[in-house]
Design a protein around this nucleic acid. Structure first.
Length: 1095
RNA sequence: GGGGCUAUAGCUCAGAGGUUAGAGCGCACGCCUGAUAAGCGUGAGGUCGGUAGUUCGAAUCUACCUAGCCCCA
């Protein structure tokens, strides 16, 4: 009777995994984990919604398997861990995908195509890749509820977002302002930074050095304390590569820290620019009627002045473009053509390019815009959305020109007005539109913002409550980000997104924010549909939502602003929006907010991690999550980013097909996933080898012998651990240690340490416990007795407990082992994933663990010594001698000498007490204990200790208990605790191996008796090989025939050891016969022919 | 330009103040095998990125520098 199924041949992990997936599905195990008892309550997990507009790549697998592990672990720990899938469905990437499909690229084309049709295509595309994501998720064992997934485009989801926006508006946190964004005038669209980064090019732009005449009558204080009176010939010098922005010029920036200097030109113009500029300041002077290019930096300075002394000086701007009156300004009177334009301080002024005086046009640059706000400068938008110069009073002559084409006439006119110092060209790297190759402009456009800057303190404060893994994100990447927080621009002038529920009166500008569908219908006087969440009755997306209008008290009409919402807002709103809070699920939200655990890759620091945090703090004054595991990016084998362009993308499904999902999971856990990693199929295979293979082999070993002996779990009474073999106790202690350490590591989200512990345990299990316990399993039931039963009980317990410990990591093999060992029947729990996290209740005997470690070390050195002496393990040796640095270790050697004898193939193990014969004793200070006490004197003591004989010192210590040494006039006492005793071999010979605690000496003499034993063992070895070659059953009995052509020596060996040979090879007979020809081999005692026959 | 991470054996990575720096893979040599050649052991292989400092003592702490990666501008 075979209690256990035979294991499939080889290592068929991918196939097994498919079976397990089927098993889980059929039994509905995942659902059962949610409905089983959860004494610890809820453990809240949020799934960060992936954008399903691409095939999942390896990095996604990483996040999925990390997100899977902790919920599985917590479920076993007695929590209920709901896992609802979610999909991020809105946003520009989806739109671009559709644009490509339609072969269009501009907003105009989308509008011609029809927003309604366009958005329907976007909606449909959302589901194209969902299937691949489902397949991948299921295949890697990511348990998540896909049936009830939330989608950010769902009406309910959108309504919750509307509620949130209205809340923010009520609290004064939603407002409209300008923002400078890269803009393509041809396509009529702003570009995301990602798009901008794609298309930087070397390009030649105008380089204009322009003079700004100071108003006469002002005074400049020089660095020598004198006062320089300004007359009509003094100019500030500024540099620009975009002459067209001069039409919007409103100020000049200087650095208050820099020193500026004034030089006099040949034509008596006095020009002021920064001292110590790094690049030349070109100018033309006329020598004998010929223009000569000079560098103004070389001119003798007229005077020097500090930048701060220039601040507030008034000058004439180049073009008198009309502008709105300035009410509040830093300057009094505010800058104007009458009172003059002002010099202001700015920290972004540099010495690298230009003159150290920066021309400022607020609509066309981020620095410009901020300075404009700070100093109350006029904001003159001189370019329309199509990139043409507007028809404004003062610059009518340029109106209608494409902005780039305005450069020439502008420069021409300034030249005529003698304001150009120099005009040339400048080669630099500049962004272009990736669609139409036109140069981008940085342009101010209206945006809606969340005033996150006003919540900075709260955001920082709540961040302190988050446990970040790795820790440095908290103060580093995320903390720094919060400290430099700017207002969050949430509006996008696009189509496929959550419409921003802001309606404004076209006449008086009054703004209303709508917080629910009901409110919208009421406001607009429309009847509420029977089901407002049915998209056939009401779709909150564009263009339907744009049709809602109503009258303002001023007589104007409220119309929705055209913008949709930043998709990051969608995902950040997930904690409440996926529950349709506050319209539904108020209780559930309270229970499920904040999350206990989220995890995504590091790029989400400024993405989802931030938007979750920002919305949670601004709306609920709470962090959104308590623990956040931040994962590194998965790169290729060489550490390069995987990209289609480089052709180095590894398809995760291919790897899974080859090595299985458990192998892939194990690879990710083992290599600290919070660091960027290098990935390849080969590395996954390596990781699997240290884990899956030994695990499988252990199961295989157990299965073979349990089946031979008909051993069943629970068949006999449990033998108390105290009565079991030392090895049994040892492995159970190791198991307890493993269980406790893995628990601790997982509780603190430390994946790789936990995985390493498991790998180490497997090494202990296979290469020591099983290896040294084999004889007990081989023994027949009668002679094995209690020892054998004890071995079975122990190994079964260890393997079934291990199955539970590895369940969160590699759920497939864990389930397989659990089912294979029939733990489900024994414990009456259907699946390992429904089992409780194991506890190993034993009293640890620490000394046993230490002793066993020592024995393993002795064996290691003995093997090394044998190898040095070139004596095979098969050849028995007479004795080994173990020398220890600490006689308290001796008892372990005596107690476990049988293990050493078996492992090392030695007849006797001796302990040497006459150490001096073989080793020198060295005494070193215990730096840890003496260091703080002695300080610099430690060196002196160290020298002293090396100068004297170790043996004498130890003798003295044993007698006195404490020693006193006079060091530099001070008496120093120290006891044994303060010393480390090390031993080293007197002479390094081939038969000596060891370290500072234990040294092993082997007896290399091979007596004729030993040699005979060795030959007998060799014969056994060859017969075993032959059994294996013939694929004999492990229990198959055989008959051995042998024949030797030369002499009687081998005949003697066989005669002498025939019982042993028979026993070891399961032979019932061993006979001399000339017909033995199958196998021929040489031994140290001559050649022998052997053949075996099944009986 | 700002911020963050990383730098340890040929490769992938541990080690987080204690004096002989580790593991796995690869390589060389060898061994065992009635679970296992997708196994086991031994060996070679390191100025712990560089410089300076703190300390009795630094791979480990500090500063600066260099290189790679990531985020932001």
């Amino acid at each position: 009777m075979k209690p256990f199924k035979e294991l499939p041949k080889g290592y068929p992990f991918p196939d097994l995994e498919q079976e397990i997936i089927k098993f889980w599905k059929e039994r509905g195990i995942f659902k059962k984990t949610l409905s089983k008892e959860s004494p610890q309550g809820e453990w809240v997990f949020y799934e960060g919604p992936p954008t399903a507009n691409n095939k999942p790549h390896v990095g996604h697998v990483l996040t999925r398997v990390v997100k899977d592990l902790f919920p599985r672990f917590k479920t076993m720990r007695g929590f209920r861990v709901e896992r609802q899938a979610g999909w991020d469905t809105h946003g520009l990437p989806v739109e671009i995908e559709i644009e490509k499909k339609l072969g269009i690229s501009t907003k105009k084309e989308i509008e011609e195509f029809g927003i309604e049709k366009f958005n329907r295509l976007c909606l449909e595309s959302v589901h194209i890749y969902e299937r691949e994501w489902r397949v991948m998720s299921e295949r890697v064992g990511f348990w998540i509820d896909m049936e009830n997934a939330y989608f950010t485009y769902h009406s309910r989801y959108i309504e919750s977002i509307w509620w949130a926006l209205k809340e923010l508006f009520k609290r004064g946190l939603l407002f409209k302002d300008y923002k400078i964004q890269p803009y393509c005038a041809r396509c009529g669209t702003t570009l995301s930074s990602h798009e901008v980064a794609q298309n930087y090019k070397e390009t030649e732009d105008p380089s204009l050095w322009l003079l700004f005449p100071l108003l006469a009558g002002q005074k400049i204080e020089t660095t020598t304390g004198e006062t320089f009176p300004v007359e009509n010939n003094v100019y500030l010098l500024a540099w620009t590569t975009t002459p067209w922005t001069l039409l919007a010029h409103v100020g000049l920036a200087v650095s208050p820290e820099f020193t500026y200097k004034a030089v006099k030109m040949d034509d008596d113009k006095i020009v002021i620019f920064a001292d110590k500029l790094l690049n030349e300041v070109p100018a033309l002077e006329y020598k004998e009627g010929k223009a000569v290019k000079i560098d103004l930096r070389d001119k003798t300075p007229l005077f020097f002045t500090k930048g701060e002394k220039l601040v507030g000086l008034r000058y004439k701007r180049p073009f008198n473009t009309v502008h709105a009156p300035v009410n509040e300004s830093y300057f009094n009177p505010p800058p104007s053509d009458d009172s003059g334009w002002c010099v202001f301080p700015a920290e972004y002024v540099s010495l690298e390019n230009g003159s150290g005086i920066v021309h400022t046009a607020p609509p066309f640059g981020d620095d410009d815009f901020r300075s404009g706000k700070q100093f109350g400068l006029p904001f003159i938008l001189t370019i329309d959305e199509e990139g043409r110069v507007k028809n404004l009073s003062g610059i009518e002559r340029f109106s209608g020109l494409w902005f780039k084409d305005a450069d020439k006439p502008i420069v021409k006119e300034l030249r005529e007005r003698k304001l150009v110092l120099f005009f040339g060209s400048y080669l630099h790297s500049y962004p272009f539109c990736w669609r139409c190759e036109q140069p981008l402009i940085y342009l101010a456009s209206e945006n809606w913002f969340i005033k996150t800057s006003s919540k900075k303190e709260d955001l920082i404060e709540k961040n302190k409550q988050i446990n970040w893994i790795p820790q440095h994100i908290k103060e580093g990447r995320f903390g720094r980000w919060l400290e430099n927080i700017v207002d969050w621009a949430i509006s996008r002038k696009r189509y496929w997104g959550t419409p921003i529920p802001v309606w404004s009166c076209q006449k008086c500008g009054t703004v209303e924010v709508i917080g629910s569908f009901k409110e919208l219908f009421e406001k607009s006087g429309q009847p509420i549909p029977s089901d407002p969440y049915d998209n056939n009755q009401f779709d909150p997306h564009r263009p339907m939502v744009d049709r809602f209008k109503w009258r303002c008290s001023c007589g104007g009409t409220f119309e929705r602003i055209p913008e949709v919402l930043d998709a990051w807002f969608d995902s950040g709103a997930m904690p409440f929006a996926h529950l349709h809070y506050p319209f539904e699920n108020r209780d559930k939200f309270t229970k499920r907010f904040p999350a206990d655990f989220i995890s995504e890759a590091v790029d989400q620091t400024r993405g989802w991690f931030y938007t979750l945090h920002a919305l949670a703090v601004t709306l609920f004054n709470s962090p959104a999550y308590k623990n956040c595991v931040v994962l590194g990016h998965v790169n290729d084998e060489k550490g390069r980013k995987m990209s289609k362009r480089l052709g180095n993308v590894v398809d995760p499904m291919e790897v899974i097909k080859e090595t299985g999902a458990d192998a892939l999971r194990w690879y990710f856990y083992l290599n600290n996933p919070t660091l960027p990693s290098r990935f390849s199929a080969r590395l996954v295979k390596d990781a699997a080898q240290s884990y899956l293979i030994p695990l499988w082999n252990s199961i295989s070993f157990f299965t073979i012998y349990a089946n031979i002996d008909g051993w069943e779990p629970g068949g006999k009474e449990t033998i108390p651990l105290e009565e079991r073999n030392t090895l049994d106790k040892w492995i159970v202690y190791k198991l307890k240690t493993l269980r406790d350490r893995v628990t601790d590591h997982l509780e603190s989200f430390n994946l790789s340490s936990a995985a390493k512990e498991i790998n180490d345990f497997l090494d202990d299990l296979t290469n020591w416990y099983i290896r040294r316990s084999r004889e007990r399993f081989w023994a027949s039931v009668e002679e094995g007795g209690k020892e054998k039963e004890s071995a079975y009980q122990t190994l079964y317990y260890v393997l079934s407990t291990l199955a539970k410990i590895i369940a969160p990591f590699t759920p497939f093999i864990a389930e397989y082992i659990y089912q294979h060992l029939q733990v489900d029947k024994v414990e009456k729990v259907e699946s390992v994933h429904l089992a409780d996290w194991p506890t190993v209740r034993v009293e640890m005997e620490q000394s046993l663990v230490e002793g066993m470690d020592l024995i393993k070390k002795v064996c290691k050195y003995a093997r090394a010594a044998r190898q040095q002496a070139k004596i095979k393990i098969r050849q028995p040796i007479e004795k080994i001698t173990v020398i220890t640095s600490d006689s308290s270790l001796d008892k372990f050697i005596t107690e476990y000498s049988h293990l050493i004898k078996e492992e090392v193939n030695v007849l006797k193990v001796e302990i040497a007490h006459n150490k001096e014969k073989f080793v020198n004793i060295k005494v070193k200070p215990n730096f840890r204990s003496l260091g703080p006490k002695l300080g610099k004197k430690l060196r002196v003591l160290q020298n002293f200790l090396t100068s004297i004989k170790g043996e004498d010192l130890i003798d003295a210590l044993e007698k006195e208990g404490e020693l006193k040494v006079d060091i530099e006039g001070e008496e120093i006492k120290f006891s044994e605790k303060d010393l480390e005793i090390a031993i080293e071999p007197k002479s390094k010979t081939v038969s000596l191996e060891g370290d500072s605690r234990v040294i092993v000496l082997i007896d290399t003499r091979i007596t004729p008796e030993l040699l005979e034993m060795g030959v007998a063992r060799e014969i056994i070895h060859f017969i075993q090989q032959e059994r294996k070659r013939k694929n004999l059953e492990y229990t198959q009995r055989i008959k051995i025939k042998w024949y030797t052509p030369d002499g009687t020596k081998i005949a003697d060996v066989i005669k002498k050891f025939s019982d042993w040979i028979k026993k070891e090879t399961l032979a019932i007979d061993i006979v001399h016969s000339k017909s033995a020809k199958e196998l021929k081999f040489g031994t140290p005692l001559g050649e022998i022919n052997i053949s075996i026959e099944q009986i």
